[in-house]
Amino acid sequence: MRKFVWFVRFALAAVLCLPGVASAAEELVNSAKYQKAPPYVVGLSNVSPSNAFKVAMVEEFKAVCEERKDLIKAYYITDAGGQIAKQISDIEDLIARKVDILLVTAASPTAISPVVEKAVEAGILVVTFDNLVETDKVTIRVEANESGIGTQNMEWLAKKIGGKGKIVMLGGIKGTSSAQLRWDGALAVLKKYPDIEVVGEAWVNWAFDKGKAAMESFLAANPVIDGVWTDGGGSAQGALTAMIEAGRVVPIVGTASNGFAKIWSKLKAESGFEAYCATNPPYCSVLALNFALDVMAGKPVQRHIRTDLAIMDNGNVDVLVRPDFSDMFWVDTLLSDEKNKELWGSK
């Protein structure tokens, strides 16, 4: 029965084009070094549960650890509260607890490298994912296709508006690597479309309030806007709300938050509105864990892995949206419905 549940869940995820795997480098992990009979002890060192994506990421990980007791005898999750010093001591702590597998999403790409290297030297299989640690010593590096969010969203938007017109771009947090990679990816696509003019650009921290405020300004300043590029769920939701209030709704791209999907699905039913999302799934923690378990089982695994993006478009938005859940829910999930209800349903 349990196996069947797993099958159903993965089949559901396939609706969203379950992230496949593309290798960035050909080098393999030395599985012989880590191969060991189950069950294992697993640690997850998290930077901070400060946003909905991170909350979902941790819950996805927990759910798998709870279900696969045959493989995982104990798991520890630490939360660094965004502090580098706290994360260093967290990882020291996990080393002391003799974990077999350590997953790290880092508070800083460089500052926690030494302690991560120490974990590798202690014989622990270390996987960095989500917010990456920049050290060659790490066993597996699972990289989200950040620039792909920028390029795939922009490709869709450019085609949607017929390769010409005026667009607005709303970026994430200026200065973070993921926001910059997405932005640069979008700009690279724009080079192919000389007839598309960017009439407004702003960095809105992926936040609803700033996305809405910026979009209100752009709508007021520009009599014509043909499309909106964003790289976030909150920013897309804010911009779309501003467009609805101004009575000027145009195609928009973002990432797969439930708040965005709710408005989108409603508008689609009313007026055939179209939008698009390329999204990095919150179960990146589960993907990272699975690669590590494969190594433990002696299977060949690449050292550098880049996961594919999940897509939400007019074809599947109505299936994925959850009108009964909070706006902060990430529509792309492997969690059970009960667990999601507990997390995102009305309390």
Partner: peptide, 15 residues
């Protein structure tokens, strides 16, 4: 007032 403007509860404020 901000809650009314955003319509939802969120920790992710930009301002």
């Amino acid at each position: 007032v901000v809650t009314g403007n955003m319509g939802v509860g969120t920790l992710e404020w930009g301002f």
